[in-house]
């Protein structure tokens, strides 16, 4: 079994493991630059699970790829600063970045069906990663791959290590991917919708696995998802993303108990209730999210927001310091009333 992560020498004053400040990402398109991520900031502490929620196209994956430097540099422009253990990683050369990728920051991809190279065994792929970062004999690396596979719940890891991806089920491939991401004991795991492609029972197993790994290995996890159920299950803190901005941030308990942004209200209202009469239709948020080139200058959600008023044409203040805050002009004292009004009015027939 890989030794649990020894806590790295903590920098003074509990600096966060990852500190993303004013991150903006834009793409080159036919009509000039299009901003996909607009001034996003967040931090991740050691051993913490931060969840970033939002619908497709809200910029979750782009954010995460920029952290790893995996965007295509020819078409993508990244601004802002990302500090990982106090080092500015956006400015790093590719060679320096490669030492961090896979070793200190592990990626768990969204679709386990396509995320493994089809022509190699999973053992080979894990060994490849270990040996890319550590001077270690093949046999020893293979032994560690078997241990890792056992760790992520393969019943017969010594046999599974020689399996090809196509010989494994979706859940098993996702576990293999997690083993791959964990193979160098990363301090930070970025998981891009790790449960989306899986069926519900396997989803629950994979989430349990992530929680257990956090406890065993002490890795911090950024969990990208659009599934509020997943968030409530595992995350310590939640950031809600909409149209390339973080519109609400707070601890999971606070956001679920007292959501502040009308978009979050809509997201939470769309979760089907477990009790009571079955709804004929699930609640939804009317309208569509804007495409990257059509995001309004002011509040991105204003066109779909029933409470929008004049002030929303300007950019709402982003109160980053607070433990729970929303990018919204609504008066905090009015929110409770407006939300219950919305829930009442939209109660499905």
């Amino acid at each position: 079994m890989p030794a649990p992560q020894t806590p790295p020498a903590t920098p003074p004053a509990r600096a966060p493991l990852l500190d993303v400040a004013n991150l903006s990402v834009s793409f080159a398109s036919d009509r000039g630059r299009v901003k996909a991520i607009d001034d996003v900031s967040f931090t991740v502490q050691e051993g913490e699970i931060l969840s970033i929620v939002g619908e497709s196209g809200s910029g979750k994956t782009v954010t995460l790829l920029s952290l790893l430097g995996l965007n295509d540099p020819r078409t993508t422009f990244v601004d802002g600063s990302v500090l990982f253990r106090g080092q500015r990683i956006l400015e790093m050369s590719d060679r320096q970045m490669r030492r961090i990728r896979g070793k200190d920051i592990g990626l768990i991809s969204q679709d386990p069906m396509t995320a493994l190279t089809p022509v190699y065994t999973i053992g080979w792929q894990i060994v490849e990663q270990i040996r890319a970062h550590e001077r270690i004999a093949k046999a020893a690396a293979r032994k560690r791959a078997i241990d890792l596979l056992a760790e992520v719940g393969f019943a017969n890891p010594a046999e599974a290590v020689d399996r090809y991806p196509h010989q494994l089920s979706g859940g098993m491939r996702q576990r293999a991917l997690i083993a791959l991401a964990l193979s160098c004991n990363p301090a930070l795991l970025v998981a891009d919708e790790p449960t989306t492609a899986l069926d519900v029972t396997v989803q629950a197993q994979v989430l349990d696995l992530l929680l257990r790994l956090r406890d065993d290995f002490g890795s911090a996890i950024i969990l990208i998802t659009h599934d509020m159920g997943v968030v409530s299950e595992v995350a310590d803190r939640v950031h809600v993303m909409y149209a390339g901005r973080i519109v609400e941030r707070g601890t999971t308990d606070a956001v679920f108990a007292d959501p502040q942004h009308p978009y979050t209200w809509g997201l939470l209202a769309s979760i089907p209730p477990l009790h009571g009469a079955r709804q004929a239709r699930l609640r939804s948020i009317p309208g569509l999210p804007p495409t990257a080139d059509g995001i309004p200058a002011g509040c991105g959600f204003a066109p779909r927001c029933r409470f929008a008023f004049d002030a929303c044409a300007a950019r709402p203040p982003d109160r980053r310091g607070d433990s729970h805050s929303a990018m919204c002009f609504l008066d905090p004292s009015d929110r409770e009333r407006l939300r219950s009004e919305m829930l009442e009015r939209e109660r499905p027939a």
Partner: peptide
Amino acid sequence: QEDFIRTARAKGLSPARVMVRHALRV
């Protein structure tokens, strides 16, 4: 464009290795 190339790059492999062992091989 495939996910497995992204995985290979996220593993911290050198560009040459990503090309030869992953993209070219497939």
